[in-house]
Structure formats: structure tokens, C-alpha cells
């Protein structure tokens, strides 16, 4: 028996919305530690990794590890039947082929239940090594979204150059070029607006804006996004879902290489 209750159902809706344009079908793995998911997009260029620790949930029970094979578009459609303020409980029997979704209004006056068919999905699970990154930029997630959107008007590849006191996003395209520099800024009174740079050595890498744009669908999940970079290894864009329990949504994208 698996049962997990999202006290704030909106978080689940945002998580699914942040993954559904990259990943069509995926296995959500449930175990005694929590819920996790790892999937590549269809062209295997990027990877999405979700971790929701059991402490994140209002209540969590998982007697035996199970994988829930889901079509994210269908999942998202059913989740549209929930109200923003609802608590959402997911339930599945061991060896069952349906996922039960229960939506409860805040005052408990409305309870709805939906069943969704599960699928058998062959998924390739990749081992992601622990990496010490040369540069980690933590910035307001809305700022990252805006930069990706704005620079996407000019071109399709963004250069991200990280130095001690600032990070530069630059783009060149047919109609011209542009760049945005964010300086390190530790807004003590408003930590959500801070830009922090942890640097071991300066890093300059290029990435496809099309993918970064899909990553920013997670903006609503967290006021801050972090970009972890090292030469020749994939960039990690992380949105913390819950700081206290180390629950997160991460996206990986390899840097573009010159030919």
C-alpha cells in the first residue's frame, strides 16, 4: 500500500506542470524514503530529477517500493480537477494498475476521488555522480526566467560566464546581440531576492535556450533557482521544493561544444 498526502496540492500541480513539456511518460518511484522520479526528454539531451522526501508530506506510507508508470499529460489533466487550496492524496495498492487521487477542500466540505490507469514504462535509470561544481549561482527564479525569455528573443544559445562578483548571460543572433549581468547581491532583508555566487574558479559555458526555457516552467515552485556549473559537465538547475526536507526538482543539460 502506498499513500502520500500533499497538504498543499498546488505544489504537486506545479511539479507536474514543470515536467510535462519535457517528459511524456515516466515512472515515479515510491519507497520508504519518499517519492522520486528521473527521466530524460525524448531526445535524451536533458534530464529531470525529482526528490520528495517522506518528511515533506502531511502523511506518507509506503509498505513496499513501487513504481507508478504515469503519462504526465493525463496526470496533469486530472490534477486540473483539483482546486488550488485542496490537499491531494495519492494512493496505490501493491501490484495494482490504478492510481487514486483524492482532492479535499480546506474545510473538508468537498472531497473528490479520481482513478487514473497506470502504465508499464521501460525507464532507463542513470547514475548521477556527486559532483563538486566550480561555480554555483543562486538567484531569484523569476530573474532567471526573465533572462532566459529575453535572451531567447535574440538567439538560441546563451553563454553563461561566472566570475567572483557577477554572472554574465550573453547571446548573439541574426538580429544582434545582448547580455545581462547579475552582480552578487546579498539582500539581507529579502533573501529571496539575493544573488549569491560560490566560486572555485571562473567558468564560461554555452547552453541551448530552448531547454533552459523549459526548465523555467518550475519557477513557481521556488523563489530561488541555483545554477551549478563545471567545465564539460552538465549544468544543474535546481529548484528547492522544500528546504527543510531537501526536496527538489533538478534539471540537467550538457553544455554546447564548439565544432
Amino acid at each position: 500500500m502506498f499513500e502520500a498526502r500533499f497538504e498543499t496540492g498546488e505544489t504537486l500541480i506545479k511539479i507536474v506542470d514543470a515536467m510535462k513539456e519535457l517528459v511524456e511518460d515516466c515512472n515515479i518511484d515510491c519507497s520508504t524514503t519518499g517519492m522520486s522520479m528521473q527521466a530524460m526528454d525524448q531526445s535524451h539531451v536533458s534530464l529531470v530529477a525529482l526528490m520528495l522526501q517522506k518528511e515533506f508530506f502531511g502523511s506518507f506510507r509506503c509498505d513496499r517500493s513501487i513504481s507508478l508508470g504515469l503519462n504526465l499529460l493525463s496526470f496533469s489533466k486530472i490534477l486540473k480537477c483539483a482546486s488550488k487550496e485542496d490537499a491531494i492524496t495519492l494512493k496505490a495498492e501493491d501490484g495494482g494498475d490504478v492510481l487514486t487521487l483524492m482532492f479535499e477542500s480546506k474545510d473538508g466540505s468537498r472531497v473528490s476521488e479520481f482513478e487514473m490507469k497506470l502504465m508499464d514504462i521501460d525507464s532507463e535509470h542513470l547514475g548521477i555522480p556527486e559532483t563538486e561544481y566550480k561555480a554555483v549561482v543562486t538567484m531569484p527564479s523569476g530573474e532567471f526566467q526573465r533572462i532566459v525569455r529575453d535572451l531567447g528573443i535574440i538567439g538560441d544559445t546563451v553563454g553563461i560566464g561566472c566570475e567572483k562578483d557577477g554572472v554574465r548571460f550573453s547571446v548573439t543572433g541574426d538580429l544582434g546581440s545582448g547580455n545581462v549581468v547579475l552582480k552578487q547581491n546579498t539582500s539581507a532583508d529579502k533573501p529571496d531576492l539575493a544573488t549569491l555566487i560560490e566560486l572555485e574558479e571562473p567558468v564560461e559555458l554555452s547552453f541551448a535556450l530552448r531547454y533552459l526555457s523549459l526548465f523555467t516552467k518550475a519557477t513557481g515552485l521556488s523563489p530561488q533557482a541555483s545554477l551549478s556549473m563545471s567545465p564539460e559537465v552538465p549544468l544543474v538547475v535546481e529548484y528547492k521544493i522544500d528546504d527543510e526536507t531537501a526536496s527538489y526538482l533538478r534539471y540537467y543539460l550538457a553544455p554546447k561544444v564548439d565544432e
Binding site: 535509470h125 542513470l126 547514475g127 555522480p129 559537465v233 552538465p234 540537467y252
Partner: peptide, 14 residues
């Protein structure tokens, strides 16, 4: 893909 490496070339199957 031109200039873009796939994820499988960085992370091992496991």
C-alpha cells in the same frame, strides 16, 4: 546532434 551532447554520455546506466 550538432554541438549538443546527450545525457547518456555523462551519466552511467545504473
Amino acid at each position: 546532434k550538432g554541438g549538443q551532447k546527450r545525457m547518456d554520455s555523462f551519466f552511467t546506466m545504473g
